[in-house]
Nucleic acid binder design. Structure first.
Lengths: 343, 343
DNA sequence: AATTGGTTCTTGACCGTTACGGTCACTCCA
DNA sequence: TGGAGTGACCGTAACGGTCAAGAACCAATT
C-alpha cells in the first residue's frame, strides 16, 4: 500500500494500478501526512518564532526581507515554513509545543522570552537570529557594535556632540519614554543593547558624557512611533544637533517630525537610521545597510543542514555605512563652540 | 502522563509534580506534537498555497497585505500558518501531500494548477481567493469586472479611445508580449481573465473595436516588467493615450518608462493601476483600491470556522475607484478627433 | 530434484499520543 | 455495617502510516 504511493519501483505496474484504482474507489485520500511524519520523524517544515504578533512581521520591511530569505532557503530544501502564533502578550507557550516542525528559527525576541525557552526545550535544531550567543544553538547576525560605531564615528567627525537617540523596545514591558542608563544595560533585546552600549563607548571616547545623552524608547515599531519619539526628544532637548535612530522605520518617522517642525534636514538636524531598507534609500537616509534577506537565507541554510557540528556555528554578515543626504555638520548655535574634526 | 501536561485538574497536584519531576529526570521533552496531531486529528495549522515561489510573495505588497490579514486571522484562532513550498516550475505536488494542516487557503493560482488539484483532493476544508467559483470550496474575492469597469468608464468619460493594456501572466507558460483575443479568453488566471473581459465589454460598448486594442502580457510581476511592457506597447503603438495596467506594480513600472521617454503624465499619457498599494498612493496613481488585508483575514476566518455549511460560501469585498493625478483627458493629436464625453 | 538467486508481494511491529472505560480506595449516610 | 457515590489513577486501544523481514513464486543453474 505504502509502496504503491512512495516506491513505484518496488512492485509491478499491474498491482500498483490495481491498488491505486481500488484506493480511489474507496475514497482513500492518499497517505495522511501527519501519520507519515510520526513514523518518519520528519515534519518537512521549519518553524519561525517572532517577537511580534504575526501580522506585525509583515509591516516591517526588514522583517519581510528576512522572511523572504528564509522562505527562499526553505523552498530550496523543499521545506515548509510554519509561522508560529506566539503572541507576546499572552504567554501562550502552547503554540510552540504544538508546532510540528523539524527545527526552529528564532528571530529577534527578548532573551528572557518564555517562547524562546520553550523552543530551546524542544529536542530539535534551532537557529537564532539577532540574539545573544547561546552555547547550544547556531546563530546568525551582524556585528551590531561595529556597525553603529560607524554611524557614531561619522557623526563625531562631522562635529556632533549633542545628540539624541531613538531606539526600539528594550524589554517586554512597555516603556514609551526616556531611558536611564540602568535600563540600557539590562535591556533584553540583544540588538538594541549592543547598539546602545557601542554608542556609549564611542561618544565617551569623544569626551561626551553619555549620561547626558537623551535616549527615547518606543514599544511599537512604526513610523508614527519614530515621529512621536522625535517630538518627545526635541521638546525636552531642542539643542540636539543629531538624532540617531536604531532603525530606519523610526528614522523615517523622525524625518517626518522634523519636517513638521520646519527643521531642515540636514542643515538644522542630522538624522540617521539603521537597516538600509528601500524606503530609506529613496529618502536619502544616512544609515547602515545590513543584508536582511541574506540573514534569512543564512538562517534557513544553517537549519536545513544542521547535521553534525559539535560546537554551535555562528554566521556574521557584513554591513555597510551608507552616507545619504540626512547627515551634515551641525549648525553653529550661540553658546556652543563646535568645530568639525578632521582626522 | 498525558493528563499531567494537558489536564492538571484531572489529578492531584502531588502526583502531577512527581510525574513532571521524573519526566524531567528522564529527559522527556514533553508530548510530541506530531503524535498528538495524529491522535487528536488536529494539526493546529493552516496551509497557504501561492502561485509564485514563496519568496516572490514577499516582494509584492498586495501579497504581503494578504499574508498579513491571513496571519492575523490565524493568530486570533491560535493557528499556525504553513507556507507550502509549491514551486510552480517543477510540478512538485508532493509538498501539498506532505503538509500537516487542518485546511488550505489557495491564493491566486491558475485554475489548471496541479497544486490546486492536489489541495482539492485532500479531505480538509479549503478557501480559495481570487479564483473562479468552485462548487466544493469557500471563496473570497472582489468583483473584478465591476472594479475594472469603473476604470474603463473613467477613461472613456475622459475621452480615451486608443488605449493599451498591460496585464500580468495569463497562464502557466511564459508569454512576454502581445496577447491575441483567443489567449485572453482562455486565460487560466481568473482575475486577469475577468478584468480583460470586462474591459473588452466596456470599450466595445463605447464603440471601440476591442481587437484593435493592444494587450501586453508579462510573466514576472515586477516594476521592471511593467516598464518593459510599456516600452513594447508604446514602441508598437505610439498613438495610445492611456495605459491600463492590471496591477499597481506594473503601473509603477509604466510610469517610470513614460518618464524615461519624456512623456508627461497625465498630459501626454494617462496611466492607471489596480490594487491600491501604499506605494502607488504616494505616486498619485489612478487605481482601484481593494482591501487586500481584509481578503486575507476573511479567508482565514472562513477557514477557521469552516464548520457546517452545506453550500460553499462566498465573500465578496468592496472596492473603490481612486482618481489620482495620472489620468486626464487625452492630448489632441493631429488626425484624431477626440472629444470628452459628458454623460 | 535440489539448490540458488532474484523478484514481487504480504505481514506485523513500531512511531508517541490521547480517549475511554475500568479499578480502586475512600467518604458519606441510612 | 453495607452500599452507593465520588474522585483519582491506570491500562489499553486506536490514530494511519513506514519499513524491514520473511513468504511465495519463478527461473536458472548444479
Amino acid at each position: 500500500m505504502s509502496n504503491a504511493y512512495n516506491r513505484p519501483d518496488q512492485l509491478s505496474p499491474e498491482l500498483r494500478r490495481r491498488v491505486l484504482e481500488t484506493a480511489r474507489r474507496l475514497g482513500y485520500p492518499g497517505p495522511d501526512p501527519v501519520a507519515r511524519s510520526l513514523r518518519t520523524r520528519k515534519a518537512g517544515a521549519v518553524g519561525l518564532l517572532l517577537t511580534e504578533n504575526l501580522s506585525y512581521a509583515f509591516r516591517d520591511p526588514a522583517a519581510v526581507g528576512f522572511l523572504e530569505g528564509l522562505a527562499l532557503a526553505c523552498e530550496d530544501a523543499s521545506q515548509g515554513l510554519l509561522l508560529v502564533p506566539a503572541n507576546p502578550e499572552r504567554e501562550d507557550v502552547a503554540a510552540v509545543h504544538r508546532a510540528g516542525v523539524d527545527g526552529f528559527v528564532v528571530y529577534s525576541v527578548p532573551d528572557d522570552d518564555p517562547h524562546l525557552a520553550a523552543v530551546l526545550e524542544r529536542p530539535v535544531p534551532t537557529v537564532v537570529c539577532d540574539q545573544p550567543e547561546l552555547d547550544t544553538v547556531d546563530r546568525v547576525g551582524i556585528d551590531d557594535r561595529a556597525a553603529i560605531t560607524q554611524i557614531a564615528s561619522h557623526l563625531i567627525e562631522l562635529g556632533h556632540r549633542r545628540v539624541g537617540v531613538i531606539c526600539m523596545r528594550l524589554a517586554r514591558d512597555r516603556n514609551d519614554g526616556f531611558v536611564n542608563v540602568d535600563r540600557q544595560h539590562t535591556a533584553h533585546f540583544h540588538v538594541q543593547r549592543a547598539r546602545l552600549e557601542a554608542l556609549a563607548t564611542a561618544f565617551t571616547s569623544a569626551n561626551v558624557d553619555w549620561t547626558s545623552i537623551p535616549v527615547v524608547e518606543r514599544f511599537d515599531h512604526s513610523i508614527a512611533s519614530g515621529a512621536s519619539a522625535a517630538a518627545q526628544l526635541l521638546d525636552r532637548d531642542p539643542q540636539v544637533t543629531a538624532l540617531i535612530c536604531t532603525s530606519d522605520i523610526l528614522a523615517l518617522g523622525a524625518l517626518g517630525e522634523a519636517r513638521r517642525r520646519g527643521l531642515r534636514v540636514p542643515q538644522d538636524l542630522t538624522i540617521t537610521g539603521f537597516d538600509g531598507i528601500t524606503e530609506s534609500e529613496r529618502a536619502g537616509l544616512t544609515t547602515v545597510r545590513q543584508p536582511v534577506m541574506e540573514k534569512g537565507r543564512a538562517a534557513g541554510k544553517l537549519l536545513v543542514n544542521a547535521a553534525d557540528h559539535n560546537r554551535p556555528r555562528t554566521v556574521t554578515l557584513s554591513t555597510e555605512l551608507v552616507i545619504g543626504t540626512t547627515s551634515a555638520p551641525p549648525r553653529i548655535t550661540e553658546g556652543a563652540l563646535v568645530r568639525p574634526v578632521i582626522l
